[in-house]
Amino acid sequence: DETGKELVLVLYDYQEKSPREVTIKKGDILTLLNSTNKDWWKIEVNDRQGFVPAAYLKKLD
C-alpha cells in the first residue's frame, strides 16, 4: 500500500559508510520513511531501511 508514502529522487550516488546507512544511486526514486532530522533522512532501498544525507535527496510532489 503506497498511499501516503512520500517519494524522493536521488540526486547523487552515495555509498553507505555504516550499517545504519544504505547505498543509493543517482536517478533512483525511493520511499521516504522519515525526514524529521534535517541532515539525515531514513529511506527504503530494496527492502532495506537506512539513512542517507538529506542533501542527496529531493522530495517529489
Rank of each mutant, 00 (worst) to 15 (best):
Y14A: 00
T23F: 03
E6C: 12
D39H: 14
Y56R: 04
T23R: 04
F51W: 15
A54Y: 03
K5D: 09
K38G: 10
V45A: 11
Y14D: 01
N34K: 07
L57H: 00
V52Y: 01
Y12Q: 15
N46D: 14
W40M: 06
V22K: 02
K42M: 14
Q49T: 12
T3M: 15
L11N: 02
E2D: 11
L7M: 12
I24S: 01
D39K: 11
G27K: 02
L30A: 14
K25R: 13
P53N: 02
D47S: 11
N37W: 07
L7D: 04
W40S: 03
L11R: 05
K25H: 11
S35T: 09
K25C: 09
S18G: 15
K17V: 08
V10E: 00
G27R: 02
F51K: 02
R48M: 07
G50L: 06
E21Q: 11
P19Y: 08
D13Y: 03
F51H: 06
Y14R: 05
E21N: 04
E2F: 13
L11H: 03
W41T: 02
T3F: 13
I43D: 00
S35C: 09
G27W: 06
R20E: 10
K38P: 15
L57Y: 01
E6R: 13
G50P: 02
Y12E: 14
N46C: 09
D13V: 02
R20T: 13
L57K: 01
I29F: 06
K38Y: 08
A54E: 03
K25L: 08
N46R: 12
P19K: 08
T3W: 13
S18L: 08
D61G: 15
S18N: 13
L30S: 03
R48Q: 08
W41K: 00
V10H: 00
N37R: 09
E2Q: 14
L7Y: 15
I24T: 03
I43A: 01
T31F: 11
D61V: 12
D13R: 02
F51P: 00
L7W: 14
K42L: 15
K58E: 12
I43W: 00
G27L: 02
N37Y: 08
E44A: 09
G27V: 00
K26W: 03
I24K: 00
N46H: 13
K42Y: 15
L9F: 08
L32D: 00
D28N: 08
E6Q: 15
K5S: 14
V8D: 00
T36H: 11
N34H: 06
D61T: 13
D13F: 04
E16V: 07
K42P: 01
S35I: 05
K17D: 06
Q15K: 13
L11F: 02
E44F: 06
K38W: 07
K5R: 12
Y14Q: 01
K25G: 05
A55Y: 10
Q15R: 10
E21L: 03
Q15C: 10
Y14P: 01
V10F: 01
W41H: 03
K59I: 11
D47C: 10
K17R: 15
Y56A: 13
L60H: 06
V22L: 10
L30E: 05
D13L: 02
F51Q: 03
L32F: 03
D61W: 10
L9E: 09
L32Q: 00
L33A: 03
N34C: 10
P53S: 02
T36G: 09
L7I: 08
D47W: 07
V10K: 00
Q15H: 12
L33K: 05
A55G: 10
A55D: 09
T3S: 14
E16T: 07
L33C: 06
D39V: 15
A55W: 12
F51V: 06
V8K: 00
K38F: 08
